[in-house]
Simulated scan of single mutants.
Amino acid sequence: MAMTPEQEKAYVELAQKGDVDAFNMLVEQHQRLAVNLAARLLGDLGLGEDATQNAFMSAYRGLSGFRGGNFRSWLLRIVANACHDIRRSSGRRPTASLDDEDLGLVAVLRSPQESPEDHAIRMELQREIQRGISTLAEDQKLALILVDVQGFGYQEVAEVLNANLGTVKSRLSRARSALRDHMLKRRELLPAGLRLDTEDG
C-alpha cells in the first residue's frame, strides 16, 4: 500500500534519527521504482539491482542532508548517480538485455489476450525500444524513462535532474526524436496505424 505524503515524511524524520526500521519502510516503498529506473538506465537488471542497493546505502548515509521536499525525487537522483558510477567504473555501455515484462517498458502495449504471434511481436518491439533507449545520451535517457516509461510529471523530473523545466523539455524532445528515428529503421515492428503514419510522414 502506498504511503501518504504525511506518512512518508514521518518515516523520513524517524530514519534521520537513526531508526533503521523506518528507513526499511522507505526502501520497501520505493524499491521497485528505483530498480526499474536503474535497470532501464543500465540496460541490465542485475546491474540495476546493484546500483539500487548502492543508492539506498548512500541515501541512508546522506539522510541528514535531506532538507525536506520530495523524498522520491531526492532518492531517484541518488539512483541515477549510482548508475552513472557503475557505468563509469565498469567502462561498459548500456546493453539491451531486458526481457522482464514486469519492468513495464511499454505498458500501453500490454493486452490481456493476444495470440502467440502477437505476443512475440510485442516482446520484440519492447526489446527494440530498449535498444533505442540504450543509444541515447545519459541525460536524455533519464528524462525519457521518467516521463514516458514511469509517467512522471515535468516538475518532478526537473527535481530529479536538478534542472529547470525548459531543460527537461528540451532533453525529452531530443530523446523522443532520436528514439523515433531508431524505431523507423524497424518500422515492421510498429503497430499498423503508426507504421502507416511514419511511412506517410
Rank of each mutant, 00 (worst) to 15 (best):
R67A: 14
G65C: 06
N81A: 11
R88M: 14
E101R: 11
D118C: 10
G91Q: 04
P112A: 07
I133V: 13
E101K: 11
V79D: 06
V149M: 05
L109F: 12
G46Q: 13
L75M: 08
L45M: 12
L136T: 03
G166W: 02
Q126P: 00
G153C: 05
G104L: 05
R110I: 03
R88Q: 13
R67M: 11
N54Q: 15
G68Y: 12
V108R: 12
S97G: 14
A38E: 02
G153K: 11
T52G: 02
L45C: 07
I133Q: 00
L98K: 01
R92I: 05
S73Y: 08
D100W: 08
E124D: 07
N162M: 14
E117F: 11
L142K: 01
N81K: 10
S134K: 01
A51V: 08
V157A: 07
L45H: 04
E128R: 13
V147G: 06
A51W: 06
R72C: 02
G65I: 12
S58A: 15
S90T: 15
Q130T: 07
V147M: 03
N54S: 14
D102W: 10
G46S: 13
D118S: 15
R93S: 12
R40G: 07
V160M: 02
P94E: 06
R127Q: 12
S64P: 00
E159D: 15
T95Q: 08
P112K: 05
G132N: 06
A82M: 03
S73G: 15
G43V: 03
A39P: 00
L37C: 07
G65L: 12
R88Y: 10
G151E: 01
S97P: 04
I86D: 01
V79G: 00
Q126A: 15
A80P: 00
N70L: 02
D118P: 07
G153T: 08
R92L: 12
R131E: 12
S111E: 15
L109P: 02
A143V: 04
E117W: 08
G151M: 00
D139I: 11
I121M: 08
G46I: 10
T135R: 10
R92M: 08
E156N: 13
I145L: 09
V160Q: 02
V79W: 02
G153S: 10
I78K: 00
L47K: 08
Q126C: 14
R72N: 08
L125A: 09
D85P: 05
L47M: 14
R77S: 13
V160F: 01
E114R: 13
R40M: 15
L105T: 09
G65P: 07
E124M: 09
I78Q: 01
N70M: 04
G68R: 09
E124K: 11
N164Y: 10
A51K: 02
L47A: 14
A96I: 01
E124P: 00
G46L: 11
R93T: 14
L165I: 15
R122Y: 09
Q140M: 11
A39T: 08
G46M: 09
Q130W: 11
R93Y: 11
E156Y: 06
A143D: 04
L76V: 06
A55I: 04
